[in-house]
Structure formats: C-alpha cells, structure tokens
Amino acid sequence: MRRYSTFNLFLIFLGGLILLFILAPLVGMFLKTSPVDLIETAKDDDVVNSIWLTLSTSFCATIIFAIAAIPLAYLLARKNFFGKRFVLGIIDLPIVIPHSAAGIAILGFISRDTVVGEIADQFGLNLVGHPIGIAAAMAFISIPFLLNAARDGFSAVPVRLEKAALNLGASHFRVFFSISLPLAWRNIVSGLILMFARGMSEFGAIVIVAYYPMVTPVLIYERFGAFGLKYARPVAVLFIIVCLIFFVLLRLLSKEKTDANS
C-alpha cells in the first residue's frame, strides 16, 4: 500500500527544509547557551531593565495607539470615500520602507527643533532618547498590523447586524461598542498581539531615535559589537523566552475571552 504519492513526498521534503531553516538557528542558539549563562544573564540588571523597558513601551504604544487606530480601522472597513485606496497605501507604508529610514523620519519629527519637540520641551521632556520616543518609533513600525487585522475583523461583521441594532433603537455609539467591536474582537486581539510583538522586536528605527535607554534588541546588538557572539547570545535567548511566554499568555487570555463570547 502506497500512502504517499511522489508529489506529496516532494511537498513534504520542501516544507521540511523551510521549517528546518526557521527552527535550526533558533534551536542551535538555545543549545549553545548554557543554563548557567542564562541564569547569570537573568540576574544582570542591564538586561532585566532593558527587557522591562521593551515590554512596557511596546505595550503602552500598542494600547495608546489602538484607541485611535481601531475607530480608523472601522471607518476603513465600513465607508467608501474618495482617496480610500490612497489612505490604505499610507497605512502600509511603514511595512515597506526601511526601518532605519523610518527612524530618521521619526527623529526629524520629534527632535527639539520641531513643533512636536518644542511642545514636549515646554513640559520638560526631550523625546529623543526617552521612552516616549521609543514608543513612537515602535508604533510607527507596528501600527499597520493592528490596522489591517482590525479592518479585516470589522469587514467580516455583517452590516445587517448593525442595521438591526440601529432599528432596535441603539445609537451609533452603542452599535459600535455592543455589536461591531465584540464581533471583530478576535481579529482586533490578533492585531494587538502582532503590533505588540512587532514593536518589541524593532531595532532599526529605535536605534536611531534612542540608543539609550536601551531596548533589548539594541542591547543585544551592543553586546555583540562590544563583546562578541558568546555574550550577545544569552540575552537573545532570554528575550525570546520572555516573548514566547507573553505571547502564549496573551493568546490564552484572548481565546478565553472570545470563547466566552461565541
């Protein structure tokens, strides 16, 4: 009995190569890092602080920008207007431009001699080299992921349900919060997680806006440049572990929430 055709074997072979390509470097890195090094690294204040900084700035950037991004995604899913394709193009820009170039653009936007910089200055803030500057860089790079996921989510909510809610006497605000948002929630959460993840892993734009305080991707780069592969590796491994734990937790939490809804 032949269970696999030649074609299927061919597909499995190629697919396997790709999986290996993704997994092998990561597994290799884990294997080459001794638990002792890992524990040492976890005790290193610089590392721990940078991981906290990275997680918290990315988290805040995601939540704050989501407040405006989710309504925008709704607008884009529901309304047709002149120049909509242009707006959609703008939204995808951060994905296609080089991140170091994005960093230069943001630096030019928030540095002290700009309007934004001057306003911040009046509150005694220098955005360059400040977590706010880091958050701005993270959000700039990662917001397309949230916008696109949320837009898909809203598009999938039948317009009829919103019409029915209006007919039942609900205001547009109530319809948005009680019908559209809960039904698109699964996609929005995916978008939030993606945005958070993408912000956390950003290096190119952040390194230009703020070398200090050091987010973990910058710290890994710095350790690699100053001390070499052996010193950079445990930080990388630790950061990956922390990220994975966070994603699994977020996925589980969001799953519970959506299950309760369905």
């Binding site: 039948p158 009829r160 349900l161 019409k163 809610a165 007919n167 609900a170 019908i179 809960p182 039904l183």
Partner: peptide, 19 residues
C-alpha cells in the same frame, strides 16, 4: 432618525446577534 421611527424590521436572515 432610524431610532426615532419605531418601525420594527425583521430581516430575512433574522440578523440575530451571534455573541
């Protein structure tokens, strides 16, 4: 406004809120 008309519409596919 829709909300002020007080005409109740039952949609062909019912439009029951699934959540």
């Amino acid at each position: 406004k829709i909300q002020k008309r007080n005409f109740g519409l039952v949609f062909q596919d019912f439009a029951i809120f699934p959540h």
